[in-house]
């Protein structure tokens, strides 16, 4: 009975449709990573400046995106944007917007932590030889902060990829949604189709995330080895 379901995976255009959904997932993840990454770096750098109101505002922004589940943020944007702001965006764009803001919040904390991990005497030594604030960032802080921020950033990328599975909820035809459609179409005739289709999804997400997780682990290990001599 289990074996019969696997045929559904390869019947007709099914596999192609699944992979098509996978591309939507991938597209959203990449756009979000780039936009959210850039915004996050800027916000993270701003959070290290000695400007109290700015720090507080950015901290509140981070906490909101940390406290409210991403699913809920997604629905808030999905319903509130058209109703309150008259902004009728397609689901995929709403998702990109919400995921980008969430990514930026998380990224800003990674960047802030990495910049602040550079010892104070490094900054003082830089200032002591006459570097400007910008030069300090460019030549002292950023080069030392990148190795610290890298593992967290790679892990954030896997979290973004996994978060794209929420696209289904606002009716974007991502891989999960395509899969669900296939299950609904074939489930009656073939009860084990769901096993194979969701199993396939498992594999696709795994293929995408596992190498990144491995990379993050390797980078972190190397950094710690270097830090501990």
């Amino acid at each position: 009975m289990l074996a019969s379901g696997i045929k559904v995976l390869f019947a007709g255009q099914n596999m192609q449709r699944l992979l098509g959904g996978f591309l939507v997932t991938l597209r959203v993840a990449i756009i979000v990573l780039i936009l959210g990454g850039i915004l996050g770096v800027l916000l993270g750098a701003l959070r290290t400046l000695h400007n109290r109101p700015l720090r507080i505002i950015l901290r509140i922004y981070l906490e909101i995106f940390r406290i409210v589940p991403t699913v809920v943020l997604l629905f808030v944007a999905y319903y509130i944007l058209p109703q309150t702001f008259g902004l009728n965006l397609p689901g995929e764009e709403v998702a990109v917007l919400v995921f980008t803001l969430w990514t930026a919040a998380e990224m800003s904390d990674i960047v802030r932590g990495a910049l602040e991990s550079v010892p104070v005497h490094q900054k003082e030594s830089g200032l002591a030889i006459g570097l400007t604030q910008a030069q300090l960032f460019r030549y002292v802080l950023i080069p030392q902060a990148i190795p610290v921020a890298l593992p967290g950033t790679i892990n954030l990328a896997t979290r973004i990829i996994k978060t794209t599975s929420l696209l289904l909820m606002i009716s974007v035809m991502d891989i999960v949604n395509v899969g669900q459609t296939l299950v609904e179409a074939n489930g009656h005739k073939n009860p084990s189709a769901a096993f194979w289709i969701y199993g396939m999804m498992f594999i696709l997400y795994y293929i995408l995330c596992a190498p990144l997780s491995q990379w993050a682990k390797r980078v972190e290990k190397k950094r710690l080895e270097r830090a501990n001599g």
């Binding site: 599975s165 929420l166 289904l168 299950v183 969701y198 199993g199 498992f202 997780s213």
Partner: peptide
């Protein structure tokens, strides 16, 4: 760690 909860739930519930 490398798959979303949503897919895990679908797999458990429907698969």
């Amino acid at each position: 760690r490398n798959t979303p909860l949503l897919v895990q739930l679908f797999f458990i519930f429907y698969g």
